[in-house]
Design a protein around this nucleic acid. Structure first.
Lengths: 232, 232
DNA sequence: AATAAGTGTTAAAAAAAGTTAAGTTGCCTA
DNA sequence: TAGGCAACTTAACTTTTTTTAACACTTATT
């Protein structure tokens, strides 16, 4: 997954099967999930961690989802809450939203849809952290400023074109790790077609040319996978 | 409604009855709604106004909701999009989210639920709506007064024509971020034709000439996307 | 070793943008 | 109302950025 830090999800579901299934599915998709089996347990867990999202079943022993949500909202207005329930009655849905929910999904639902709804919710809250995305990088003897599209050393200054800039940025962000070809193509070129892939190779060559004045810096290819920016 | 400024909603719905019903209901609830009858109309309207939320029907003549959403997402990543549709097929829901939707509601739905979902979506974005129409800007050593159409330094004073004024204003409002070409064209020139685009380029050149006395200020181009006003 | 698929690199063609100047238009004024 | 002027558009030419093509080389597969 592209995120440096996994989003943490608090899951409250008393149905053993569904609970573990969900938990495993979400972990597989790159989220860090905490599974609780009732409202009280979830409430306690909430304050022991910094979660990014809550998914609550409505009908649970000890404390139902609506009550749980209301109590959490007293302490936290921000965190997205998604209800998951068998009830599809209009009044229940409305009560869910009145409890401070951001979304309400009725069973049976598709895992994929849940995943998209989670992403949509996180996008809105994660954005406030987006400003913190790194834009200044040290690449060997180079200094790379993403915002200014500038790559410079103490000697020289090279203006980067938008494509060069985006590509180098992705390389820097996945520094030490590999930048996946398909990922980069979809991110910068919108889709991964043959010609876009060849275009990307051309830009890799250009970046290599710019960076070759420092032998410590290298862009290596991982056959069939992508590229890796090495700084020794 | 308690808000000083009403949230503006762009509604695209080809069903006359449902369209006006929704529009009237939302107006009653304190939103300012713009009703369009197909995807193309909605697309054009989008760039001429500052909407806070989009509600799109999926099946519409000329341009369907999915295509519309994808096109809008190319220019605006932020605005919440909610699909409203008779289709409840799994694949359709998923395609909706893939098109960049934030929520997906299947007909028949309750007006109240729609209202809650709108509120939930707006809650997350409204804070970022700091577009309280700022009219005074510091651009490096320049002082820009949008109302007076004036760009001055301690040394000099440059009166701006309306086009220059509007363009510089948009650049300032999207400071650090990029000003989308299509967005600016539709906003200032009403439509993005080849000649209007060339005209805009001429105005960019003019602004650059005015601003070049301060080397800290720069208008850079993001190929195929738009322009960015950099202040160092 | 032979083949195919993936990558490296350079050059060309195509598309987008930069700039300056020449037309247009509409409005003000003498 | 003719002329002048300012704002804007269109044209023409230049430069930059991106894509496509061409050919050489590398890696995986059989």
């Amino acid at each position: 997954m592209e995120n440096e830090t996994k989003s943490k999800i608090l899951l409250a579901e008393d149905d053993q099967n569904l609970g573990t299934l969900l938990s495993e599915y979400l972990s597989l998709k790159g989220y860090s999930t905490t599974l609780t089996r009732n409202g009280q347990e979830a409430f306690d867990a909430f304050f022991k961690n910094n979660f990014n999202l809550c998914i609550f079943d409505v009908m649970m022993p000890l404390k139902d989802g609506f009550t749980l949500a209301k109590e959490i909202r007293k302490h936290n207005e921000e965190i997205p809450i998604l209800f998951l329930t068998a009830k599809s009655l209009k009044e229940d849905t409305l009560e869910g939203f009145k409890s401070g929910a951001d979304d309400y999904l009725t069973k049976p639902f598709s895992m994929e849809e849940l995943l998209y709804r989670i992403k949509a919710l996180l996008k809105r809250t994660q954005n406030q952290t987006k400003e913190l995305e790194q834009t200044l990088f040290e690449i060997g003897k180079f200094h790379f400023d993403y915002n200014k599209q500038l790559l410079k050393t103490s000697q020289s200054e090279q203006k980067l074109t938008s494509k060069e800039n985006e590509l180098l940025h992705l390389l820097c962000l996945s520094q030490n790790g590999i930048l996946d070809r398909t990922f980069a193509l979809k991110k910068i070129w919108e889709d991964d077609s043959y010609f876009n892939a060849r275009s990307m190779d051309v830009y890799i060559a250009k970046l290599r040319k710019y960076l070759k004045t420092d032998p410590q810096v290298e862009i290596i290819n991982i056959h069939g996978k992508g590229f890796k920016l090495l700084i020794n």
